[in-house]
Design a protein around this nucleic acid. Structure first.
Length: 303
DNA sequence: GGACCTTTGAAGTTC
DNA sequence: GAACTTCAAAGGTCC
């Protein structure tokens, strides 16, 4: 039963993405090189950050087949040169390539079938784009001029939970105290990237639509929805992510992602071994049968 | 209690 | 500079 479900879900996705112009995609989209949406330099024109989230939903974005095939995609950073002054060379750039996701390892809920996975981005034309509510952008008290008392969510106790209860300090040696003090330092988390911001916003919706609770399965769906987003829709999240990073840099100038390295114990060697031997546990703790390599996606016109 | 699963992207490390 | 690794979120599952 499980296997059948997996296979049926796999078969559905083997036919995804719907070939452009084949009538399966909710709204055929114009080619990527639609100059109307770009600046004279070929850079998509974007309105200021928050405008996206209070303005009507934008026109369906240009997207072409190369987006779905992992073909080099000349996405570029929106022209925000005057908007961000602290960003480094690579910060905020849209990815240069997009790889197409592998077939799902999870059985998908019938209520979250093929079409529900990839709703038309403009299903409600003219409807306002949902306001982005990522808490990181609701500045906390650490930001000058902001009265809000909510600390920046990037700061969490080392455990990720509440502080430990007081203990008998007399029982601790100096070294232990020092180590403990070090360990008690709040961990500054990485700023969220565009996809993480998207996930955070859309997770509840997917849970409601698909009646799923497994994050691994939800994330698979979100990953595919992410790929189904238009460039403009994705650009909103890339822009938010860049804003996140800029804010993060301002709040924690000396912070480096290296600071959190090693705080999660991962079995990288084992994982590597799994990947080289073809086995990988799924969220159910089982090793799914290795599916045949997905056929390269070709537009219907070619097929 | 903590690693794992899953996803993408950013940034760090290694060669 | 390419390739690889780690960590961000999430919550159920497993050890």
């Amino acid at each position: 039963m499980y296997k059948e479900t997996v296979y049926s879900a796999f078969n559905l996705l083997m036919h995804y993405p719907p070939p452009s112009g084949a009538g399966q995609h909710p709204q055929p989209q114009p080619p990527l090189h639609n100059k109307a949406s770009q600046s004279p330099h070929g850079v998509p024109q974007l309105s200021p950050l928050y405008e996206h989230f209070s303005s009507p939903h934008p026109t369906p974005a240009p997207a072409d087949i190369s987006q779905k095939q992992g073909v080099h995609r000349p996405l570029q950073t929106p022209d925000l040169s005057g908007f961000y002054s602290l960003t480094s060379g690579s910060m905020g750039q849209l990815p240069h390539t997009v790889s197409w996701p592998s077939p799902p390892l999870y059985p998908l809920s019938p209520s979250c079938g093929y079409r529900q996975h990839f709703p038309a981005p403009t299903a409600a034309p003219g409807a306002p784009y949902p306001r982005f509510t990522h808490p990181s952008l609701m500045l906390g008290s650490s930001v000058p001029g902001h009265p809000a008392a909510i600390p920046h969510p990037a700061i969490v106790p080392p455990s990720g939970k509440q502080e430990l209860q007081p203990y008998d300090r007399s029982l601790k040696t100096q070294a232990e105290s020092k180590a403990e003090k070090e360990a008690k330092k709040p961990t500054i988390k990485k700023p969220l990237n565009a996809f993480m911001l998207y996930m955070k916003e859309m997770r509840a919706k997917v849970i409601a639509e698909c009646t799923l609770k497994e994050s691994a399965a939800i994330n698979q769906i979100l990953g595919r929805r992410w790929h189904a987003l238009s460039r403009e829709e994705q650009a909103k999240y890339y822009e938010l992510a860049r804003k996140e990073r800029q804010l993060h840099m301002q709040l924690y100038p000396g912070w480096s992602a290296r600071d959190n390295y090693g705080k999660k114990k991962r079995r990288s060697r084992e994982k590597h071994q799994e990947s080289t031997t073809g086995g990988k546990r799924n969220a159910f703790g089982t090793y799914p049968e290795k599916a045949a390599a997905p056929a390269p996606f070709l537009p219907m016109t070619v097929l």
